[in-house]
Each structure stands twice: as C-alpha cells, then as structure tokens.
C-alpha cells in the first residue's frame, strides 16, 4: 500500500466502484460506478437530487457510503496526507467562515498542507480576487465565493479537480474563466470531474459524460456515445433522466 502519507497524485484516476448510500430508508445512491481519467474532462450530469453531490462528497470522504469504494489512484481520499497537492475540490461554495477575509481563509488552507503564502497570492491573482482578498467573506457575492473556493482548490496545483456545479452564481467572465481553466487543466494531463445541470455549458467542454438519475447511473461514455442518436447532449439528458 503506497496510499498513506504520500503527497501528490501519480496518475490521477478517479474510480467510483459500486457505491451505494442510504439515508434512513431513502436510497440516495444505488450501485454507482464510473471512472474519470487523466487528460479528460468528465461531466457528471443529472437532475437536482439525483445523487451528484452525494457521490462527490463520498469521493472526498465527507459522507460515508454503506457499500462500495471511491478511490483516487487506488487509495481513498482520506488516506492522503497533503490532499491539496493531489485533489482540488469545490463543493457547496467557498467553505470560508463569514467573518474571515478571503486571504485569511486561503492562508489557513495553504498552511494546513504546508503550502507557501506566495502561492496564496498567486491563486488570488489567478482567481481575480485581488480587490476582494482583504474583505470579509460575508460581504462577497455568490460569484466571488465561487472564485474563492476555486482559488483554494488550486492552491496545491493538484492533478485532479473535483467541481460541484462550478458555474452556479458566476458571471459571464467567471463562466469563461472556469471553462478555460478546466480545458487547460485537462490538456495538461489533469483529471477534471465536474457536475452540472447546465447542459449548454457542459457540452462544449466535456470529453466524457456520466448521467445519473434517481441515484443510478443512466449512461456513461464519451460525449459522442452518450449523445448518440439523440442529436444533442441536452436531448440525450432528458431522454435518459425522464424515464
């Protein structure tokens, strides 16, 4: 086992293997399996409540699955000692406490993984947060919160990006920035797994698609195979998730 006490990812393969989760009597996920590969953008799509966020939370060790495994390069995320150098994640927003400044938030996140303050300044610039960095997060717009979350995810320059609904709340400039970021990362050999319900945004940037509906995988494959004879990703999505 090489997965404990190591930093960085070697390949950056995300494997979700037969994951099932129940909350009380409600089955949230039922045998969910898929793989997100390096050098590709994998779009994880489905209606609200289909299980996208739950799957990503299980991948990051925030929620526990009753069955199955979620692995990054063969080990669970929770076994990583400096996870930010391997996986950068943005789940529901920035994760910053309202009375902290954006810069203070990034500084503690960086320090927890032994990353430098210089890197904090770099990601502030990268995310376009220069003018907001010294303001308290409670005064941020939703879009600025998103940018702050992404800045934190990029701190460790990770090979894997996991983004839950990254376009929510972003303005046009933000959407464009995320789109380019995601493409650039994948082109450089990184793994990008992103969930969304915005088909038009996704169709332009994804290589692979995983469709989830009612906690089950409805389809998975390359953009072309999933789109198939449906004509567009959007048509395929509605055909696959309405049944």
């Amino acid at each position: 086992m090489c997965g404990t006490a190591r930093s960085g990812c070697i390949a950056g393969v995300i494997e979700i293997e037969n994951v099932s989760k129940r909350r009380g009597r409600v089955t949230v996920l039922d045998g969910v399996s898929f793989v997100a590969r390096p050098g590709r953008v994998t779009g994880f799509i489905g209606p609200n409540g289909a299980g996208k966020s739950s799957t990503l939370r299980i991948l990051l060790g925030l929620d526990h699955a009753q069955e199955g495994r979620a692995l990054v390069d063969g080990s669970p995320f929770t076994a990583l000692r400096r996870p930010l150098t391997c996986v950068g994640a943005v789940l529901d927003g920035s994760g910053a406490h309202r009375s902290r400044t954006g810069r203070a938030h990034l500084r503690w996140v960086a320090a927890s993984n032994g990353l430098s303050r210089r890197r904090v300044e770099e990601v502030i610039e990268l995310a376009g947060l220069e003018s907001a960095a010294n303001k308290r997060v409670r005064g941020y717009s939703l879009g600025m919160g998103r940018r702050l979350g992404l800045a934190a995810a990029l701190l460790g320059d990770p090979g894997v990006l996991v983004l839950d609904e990254p376009f929510n709340g972003l303005d046009a400039g933000g959407v464009r920035w995320v789109r380019e970021l995601v493409r650039t990362r994948a082109r450089a050999g990184g793994t990008v797994l992103l969930s969304s319900h915005l088909m038009s945004e996704l169709a332009e940037i994804v290589d692979d698609v995983v469709v989830i509906s009612g906690g089950r995988i409805a389809a998975r494959g390359t953009l072309d195979t999933v789109t198939g004879e449906h004509g567009s990703l959007e048509d395929a999505y509605f055909a696959l998730t309405s049944s």
């Binding site: 060790g61 925030l62 996870p83 529901d92 994760g95 406490h97 409670r138 941020y140 702050l148």
Partner: peptide, 27 residues
C-alpha cells in the same frame, strides 16, 4: 460551531467543515 455555520444558499460563506476536511481528511 464555527465549522458548521451555514449562511444559506445565497451566501458566499458556506460551512467551513467542508474546507477543513478536504484540506485535512483524517478526522
């Protein structure tokens, strides 16, 4: 309690526990 403070969907500030455990996954 500061880890679990949630200001609602329209806020840029969300539960810090998510940031904490993605940075330090060993609980």
């Amino acid at each position: 309690s500061s880890e679990y403070r949630d200001d609602g969907e329209d806020s840029a500030s969300t539960r810090q526990i998510v940031a904490s455990l993605t940075a330090v996954p060993s609980r």
